[in-house]
Design a protein around this nucleic acid. Structure first.
Lengths: 239, 239
DNA sequence: CGCACAATTGAGCAAGCTCAAGGAGTGTGG
DNA sequence: CCACACTCCTTGAGCTTGCTCAATTGTGCG
């Protein structure tokens, strides 16, 4: 379960056997959340951070008028609320989009680990920094991309992120969102998501049936989305 | 100059005299950048992080088609690229919107500081986490708010952030952006920014003349923007 | 004066929205 | 087994927010 974290760190930088061991021996408490249920609510004060072991989750904010905006998708290997280690009170909620298994790691243990090992501290810090980088890319999409390119970008990003944790079978991956949920990711209405999707489908770029997306023409999709995966920091570079 | 940082930390948590001193004795190199010039370019590999001492800056991303989206405003007391301490390569650029003074703090010094003092490490980490929180709020605005409320929200946020560093005279503050730049903040066209601004002005909510904004009706503006400053983490709470 | 840049305004257009309805799949109680 | 409810997807129709293109008016500066 913590191996997921080890493997993610190892994609980004070299770590020693002792460090690997230090991560593997972090205390965890397993938690299961059903699809559609809340994982963390806005305003909660966290005392542990949740590592998603399997499933799909999303950070979201609600508006006074009932509107909802998802601000990030959480995939296996991602922390849903690592930032709560330094900012206890949650400024947003986290929702399970599929059945999820989560490993709760007490903040106390994470604090000890980061105090004793500055390198692992930086790798954890990097996790939250990559979240911010993803946020920025989404902002660019929300502010400056039209629906088609925005959606294409999300599919590209999701493919690369899932592939990084071995959950993409080539250019195909599970994507258990409803179109309404996708609309809240993309800042569109559900109706427009449907039409945009139809356009992507009928131009042969993607298929999406029974919760599984297939990217039929990666090159064309990347061009349409202007996608460059550098911001995901999924390749080695010393930290 | 580094006092700005000390004061920001002290707004958020208690720090000891020794810690204060450790921050004050960080090596810095002063740098001046003229309005309109670039502070950091996308793709740069940073070896120091830049603390904005005075002026106004913005993070931005460019699109292939020439479009531009600002992803955060940098105000005095903010780091423009603290995240580069753990993610060397810049995934976006930083632009001076007004004449800026910056203090460059070598990564080496920051690494030493964070390795030796976990509490200060967490406070620096928190800086980047608040950036991410601001990103999320902007995302909600870009995805789900109309132009009027989005602009009102930005003015509220800017007032609170400037006030926190003593740069707001009551409900009035310097705001040295052109309408075109504001458009790139809000994900709107310059023309629509102008019209939205007119609406805010003629309803008596704000004035904006000669680079200075005045908020005439804070309560109404907050309501229009649905603004809640909690995400800025400008008040005390142990880290 | 001439130039560059910012703000403003008009006019027409379009991407994306809302409202509404219908179909398909699934689960539940009778 | 059927009726019903429910959710999700799909499609049509008309509307509205915000866009583009274009022109006009300052304003500071060499």
């Amino acid at each position: 379960m913590l191996d997921l974290l080890v493997r993610k760190f190892e994609r980004r930088d070299d770590i020693s056997a002792a460090q690997r061991e230090a991560i593997r021996s972090l205390p965890v408490q397993l938690r299961q959340v059903r699809a559609g249920e809340s994982i963390v609510s806005e305003g909660d004060r966290q005392t542990a951070s949740l590592l998603l072991a399997s499933g799909f989750a999303a950070r979201f904010s609600l508006m006074r008028d009932g509107g909802r905006q998802f601000t990030e998708l959480g995939l296996p290997g991602d922390f849903m609320d690592l930032h709560s280690l330094v900012m206890k009170r949650m400024d947003h909620g986290v929702l399970a989009l599929a059945d999820c298994e989560l490993a709760a790691i007490p903040h106390e243990a994470l604090r000890d680990l980061t105090a004793q090992d500055p390198h692992l501290a930086r790798l954890l810090w990097l996790e939250t920094v990559v979240d911010a980088a993803i946020h920025r890319v989404w902002m660019v999409g929300l502010g400056r991309r039209d629906a088609l390119s925005r959606m294409a970008h999300l599919f590209c990003e999701t493919q690369v992120r899932l592939d990084a944790v071995g959950l993409a079978g080539g250019l195909s991956f599970d994507f258990p969102l409803s179109q309404t949920e996708l609309a809240d990711v993309l800042g569109l209405s559900a109706v427009h998501v449907n039409r945009t999707l139809m356009a992507l489908r009928s131009s042969g770029l993607i298929d999406w049936r029974e919760g599984r997306v297939t990217l039929n023409d990666w090159a064309r999709l990347v061009r349409l989305a202007d996608f460059d995966p550098l911001y995901l920091r999924l390749w080695k570079e010393p930290v």
